[in-house]
Amino acid sequence: MARKKKKKPPMDVSLQVLSEGMKYGQRLIGLDLGTKTIGVALSDGGLMIASPMETIRRKKFTQDAEALLDIIEKNSVTGIVLGMPYNMDGSEGPRSQATRDFALTFREKCPLPVTFWDERLSTVAVTRTLLDADTSRARRDEVVDKMAASYILQGALDRIKQGFEDESSPDFFEQESNDGES
Results as ranks from 00 to 15, higher is better:
R3S: 10
K4N: 10
K4G: 08
K5M: 11
P9A: 14
V13D: 00
S14C: 04
V17I: 12
G21Q: 11
K23S: 14
Y24F: 11
G25Y: 08
Q26S: 13
L28K: 07
G30R: 05
L31Q: 02
L33K: 00
V40Q: 03
A41M: 06
A41R: 05
S43G: 08
M48Q: 13
I49M: 12
A50I: 05
P52Q: 08
M53E: 13
E54T: 15
I56Y: 04
K59I: 01
F61V: 02
F61G: 06
T62L: 13
E66L: 13
E66Q: 14
A67M: 11
L69G: 10
D70R: 15
I72Y: 04
I72C: 07
K74Q: 15
S76L: 07
S76Y: 09
T78P: 00
I80A: 02
L82Y: 01
G83W: 03
P85S: 09
N87V: 01
M88P: 02
D89T: 08
D89R: 06
S91F: 06
S91V: 06
R95E: 12
R95D: 10
S96Y: 06
A103P: 04
L104Q: 14
F106E: 01
R107M: 12
C110A: 04
C110N: 10
L112T: 07
V114M: 09
T115D: 00
D118M: 09
E119L: 04
T123Y: 04
A125S: 13
T127E: 15
T129K: 15
A133D: 12
R137P: 00
V143Y: 06
M147Y: 15
M147E: 15
A148N: 01
A149D: 02
L153R: 02
Q154T: 03
Q154D: 06
L157W: 07
I160H: 03
Q162K: 15
D166S: 08
S169R: 14
D171P: 00
F172P: 01
E176R: 12
S177I: 10
N178P: 00
G180Y: 04
